[in-house]
């Protein structure tokens, strides 16, 4: 009997995500309305857009005929400087991240140390690289030193945060076992923590290497050295062909870094 009523062509509809029909309809009408009004408040200077169009076209044309040759020396110098900045800053960032990550793991550090290290991470992560770069350029002058300082500082937040998360998620039993043998804190880290998290942390560091190269191209624009500085100079001189060449070089290197770091991370299981 039950079965008969259940089988009779019952309709079914997915229950709405927002149950209250008034709220639902209000949102359906209100959100597009708000977008429309908000767009209206944007003051778009169409005259300026039209004036810029020829230059945009000029640049697009330049992309089709990049000039690697006339500033070859500067491009090579810029690339080498960026690569050096990337490697040095990632290495420094990794070294500085290790103590911060250990301190920021709740299962290893006492509360005051934990809070301090989490604060360091938060500070490092709360500023965009450009802002840090402006600061370091002001402190250390123009050039790659400011770039290295910027990227190393930004790497701390990134690597230490992810590594600390990794440490907190590891299996606690081996740590307990090493504690039970009478091992010291350093020995516990070296014997129980490091083997468990090292492959992942190496992967995270490689990923950061990749990011640091891209960032090194950007922070050059505010004077922190590297290929970004070369690119900025090219734009300043209206040498769009050279700028196009530099952009292509950056794309190729980022792709190469992406593939190699992906491949390396894949091998680190």
């Amino acid at each position: 009997m039950n079965r008969a009523t259940a089988a009779a062509g019952m309709t079914w509809r997915r229950p709405p995500v927002i149950a209250n029909p008034w709220l639902r309809r209000g949102l359906f009408i209100g959100v597009p309305l708000y977008l429309f009004v908000a767009l209206g408040t944007l003051e778009i200077n169409w005259a300026r857009v039209m004036a810029g169009m020829p230059r945009a076209l000029e640049f697009l044309a330049a992309l089709a005929s990049p000039d690697f040759v006339s500033r070859a020396d500067q491009i090579i110098d810029g690339v080498l400087e960026s690569l050096t900045m990337t490697l040095v800053s990632t290495f420094l960032g990794f070294l500085l991240s290790v103590p911060v990550a250990l301190g920021a793991a709740r299962n290893l550090a006492p509360v005051p140390v934990y809070l301090t290290c989490r604060a360091i991470i938060a500070i490092s992560r709360s500023f965009q690289e450009i802002i840090i770069a402006i600061l370091f350029v002001a402190m250390l002058g123009f050039g790659p030193l400011a770039g290295v300082a910027t990227l190393a500082f930004a790497s701390i937040g990134f690597i230490a945060k992810l590594a600390a998360e990794e440490i907190e998620a590891m299996n606690p039993r081996p740590l307990e076992a090493i504690r039970a043998t009478g091992g010291s804190w350093l020995q516990r880290v070296q014997w129980a923590v490091q083997p468990q998290v090292l492959p992942r942390v190496a992967g995270i560091t490689l990923y950061r290497l990749d990011i640091n190269f891209r960032e090194s191209a950007i922070i050059g624009i505010v004077g922190a050295g590297g290929i970004g500085a070369t690119l900025n100079t090219a734009f300043d001189r209206y040498e769009f062909e050279t700028a196009a060449a530099i952009l292509l070089v950056i794309i190729v290197i980022v792709l190469a870094a992406e593939y190699t770091s992906g491949w390396l991370r894949g091998r680190l299981r």
């Binding site: 039993r173 081996p174 504690r179 043998t181 083997p195 468990q196």
Partner: peptide, 18 residues
Amino acid sequence: ARRRIGMVFQEFALVDRL
């Protein structure tokens, strides 16, 4: 003192990658 007390665990608690 802990050196004098050996401990064996249910889930073995070995360090897997070593």
